[in-house]
Measured scan of single mutants.
Amino acid sequence: LPHTAVCLVCGEAGKEDTVEEEEGKFNLMLMECSICNEIIHPGCLKIKESEGVVNDELPNCWECPKC
């Protein structure tokens, strides 16, 4: 993702460097949905019932829970 990318919900950049544990890092890193192209911190999504499908081949790419 470009350095200028920010979260659609909170308007902040990736914050994964501020935590140690892997789950915390994931919730604070910016992810781009391969379907709707929205860039968001997974932790900013209010959807709890399902998780997005992470694409292991492309960094910061997933199918968000909304899609």
Results as ranks from 00 to 15, higher is better:
Ile40Ala: 12
Glu32His: 13
Asn55Ala: 09
Val6Thr: 14
Glu16Pro: 11
Cys64Trp: 01
Met31Pro: 01
Pro2Gln: 14
Leu58Thr: 14
Leu30Val: 05
Ile39Tyr: 13
Met31Ala: 07
Met29Leu: 06
Ser34Arg: 06
His41Tyr: 00
Phe26Asn: 13
Leu45Lys: 04
Ser34Ile: 10
Glu51Asp: 12
Ala13His: 04
Pro59Asn: 15
Ser34Cys: 10
Asn55Asp: 11
Cys10Ala: 04
Ser34Met: 07
Glu51Val: 09
Leu58Asp: 15
Ile35Asn: 05
Glu23Gln: 07
Leu58Gly: 07
Pro2Ile: 15
Asp56Pro: 13
Lys48Met: 14
Ala5Ser: 07
Cys64Lys: 01
Pro65Ile: 00
Glu38Ile: 09
Glu57Trp: 05
Gly52Tyr: 10
His3Glu: 15
Glu20Gly: 12
Met29His: 05
Val54Cys: 06
Val6Glu: 04
Trp62His: 01
Phe26Gln: 04
Asn37Lys: 13
Phe26Asp: 04
Cys67Pro: 00
Leu28Gly: 10
Cys67Leu: 00
Lys25Ala: 06
Met31Arg: 08
Pro42Thr: 02
Glu49Met: 11
Met31Val: 06
Pro59Glu: 15
Phe26Ser: 05
Leu1Asn: 15
Cys7Asp: 00
Phe26Met: 13
Ile40Lys: 04
Glu63Pro: 00
Thr18Asp: 03
Leu8Arg: 13
Glu20Ala: 10
Cys10His: 01
Leu1Tyr: 15
Gly14Met: 07
Trp62Phe: 11
Gly43Val: 05
His3Ser: 10
Asn60Ser: 08
Pro59Ser: 10
Pro65Lys: 06
Phe26Thr: 08
Val53Thr: 13
Glu32Pro: 03
Val6Tyr: 15
Lys25Gln: 06
Cys44Thr: 00
Asp17Met: 15
Cys61Ala: 13
Met29Asn: 04
Leu28Asn: 15
Gly11Lys: 15
Glu12Val: 05
Ile40Cys: 10
Cys36Ser: 00
Glu12Lys: 08
Cys64Val: 00
Lys25Gly: 05
Lys48Asn: 15
Glu20Tyr: 02
Lys46Cys: 13
Thr4Gly: 02
Lys15Phe: 04
Asn55Gly: 11
Glu38Trp: 08
Val9Trp: 01
Lys48Ser: 08
Glu20Val: 11
Leu58Val: 11
Glu21Gly: 14
Leu58Ala: 03
Thr4Val: 00
Thr18Val: 02
Ile40Gln: 07
Thr4Tyr: 12
Asp17Val: 09
Pro59Ile: 07
Glu20Asp: 06
Lys48Ala: 14
Glu21Pro: 12
Val53Pro: 08
Trp62Val: 03
Asn55Val: 06
Leu8Trp: 10
Gly52Thr: 09
Glu57Met: 10
Asn60Ala: 07
Pro42Asp: 02
Cys10Leu: 00
Leu45Gln: 13
Lys66Thr: 10
Glu32Ala: 06
Glu21Lys: 12
Val6Arg: 05
Leu45Gly: 09
Ile35Phe: 02
Phe26Pro: 08
Lys15Ile: 05
Asn27Trp: 07
Ala13Phe: 11
Leu45Met: 12
Ile40His: 13
Lys46Asn: 14
Leu45Ile: 04
Leu8Lys: 14
Asn55Lys: 02
Asn60His: 09
Val9Ser: 09
Lys25Thr: 04
Glu22Arg: 11
Glu49Ile: 06
Glu57Cys: 12
Pro42Val: 04
Val6Lys: 14
Leu8Glu: 02
Ile35Ser: 04
Pro65Cys: 04
Thr18His: 04
Cys36Tyr: 02
